[in-house]
């Protein structure tokens, strides 16, 4: 059984009840009846060994995949039954991936503007916001560079800027430091924390790096597709 979610001020934004996900016609059970609540403004780190289902959970939260069973709500609305999942991903969610997932034929500034096509911004507004975001992650001098011309840490900064392009209320980060050296990893977590504090976004971060998880306000540990512990950091 999972311990009840710690009481943290803020609106309940994610609620998972008995969430299950099967692959290969049930041969692989990624999630086995997971229960979870996440509130607005939290910085939640989800930790666990490879294959415990943490990335699968993140994909469910981001509406990139559908659960096989169970309830999964975002602000009271069922995520799998959303009428417009693209709008949810475009305006409520910002994704940050382990392998950056930048588009190689577009410049840094263009990559950051790509999610904005689903908004109502004009061409100049998109450009202005892209520059602003890249400056906020310390890449104002790299606007016209291509991803291949950047270091791993810089690419992840671009990915973070892209994740914030439509001013989402939640950032879902899947092993954002997994492909980085330790120095870059610290810088990226510093940046995420700074943006989390400044913008008040809810940050859900999947990692297997305990030093990263220690900086979160709440740590959820998963094993075999279930939550086995859920702790709020003492400092929070």
């Amino acid at each position: 059984m999972v311990a009840a979610a710690p009481t943290i001020p803020g609106e309940l934004i994610y609620e998972a009840i008995g969430l299950k996900k099967q692959f290969d016609n049930g041969k692989v059970m990624a999630l086995r009846g997971l229960d979870l609540e996440i509130r607005q403004g939290e910085f939640v780190a989800i930790i666990g060994q490879s294959g415990c289902g943490k990335s699968t959970l993140l994909q469910m939260l981001g509406c990139l995949d559908r659960p096989s069973e169970g309830t999964l709500n975002y602000r009271g609305t069922s995520i799998p039954d959303m009428r417009d999942p693209a709008a949810y991903r475009a305006h409520q969610i910002g994704f940050v991936f382990q392998s950056f997932h930048l588009l190689p034929t577009f410049t840094v500034l263009e990559n950051v503007q790509i999610p904005m096509f689903e908004g109502k911004l004009s061409r100049s507004q998109r450009k202005a916001r892209g520059i602003e975001l890249l400056e906020s992650v310390g890449l104002g001098h790299r606007l016209s560079h291509y991803p291949s011309e950047l270091s791993g840490g810089e690419r992840q900064r671009v990915a973070i800027a892209r994740g914030l392009a439509n001013r989402p209320s939640v950032v879902l980060a899947d092993e954002p430091t997994g492909n980085l050296d330790s120095e870059s990893a610290v810088q990226i977590i510093d940046l995420l924390l700074e943006l989390h504090g400044k913008l008040g976004v809810t940050l859900v971060l999947v990692t297997h790096d305990l030093s990263v998880a220690e900086r979160a306000s709440r740590t959820i540990r998963m094993k075999d597709g279930r939550v086995i512990s859920d702790k709020v950091a003492a400092s929070h």
Binding site: A86, A87, R89, H101, I114, F117, E118
Partner: peptide
């Protein structure tokens, strides 16, 4: 395919 996956993940509609 991978690039299309990224576009979908960042919120592009299938119609786009």
């Amino acid at each position: 395919t991978h690039e299309i996956g990224i576009l979908l993940a960042v919120g592009w509609r299938k119609s786009r």
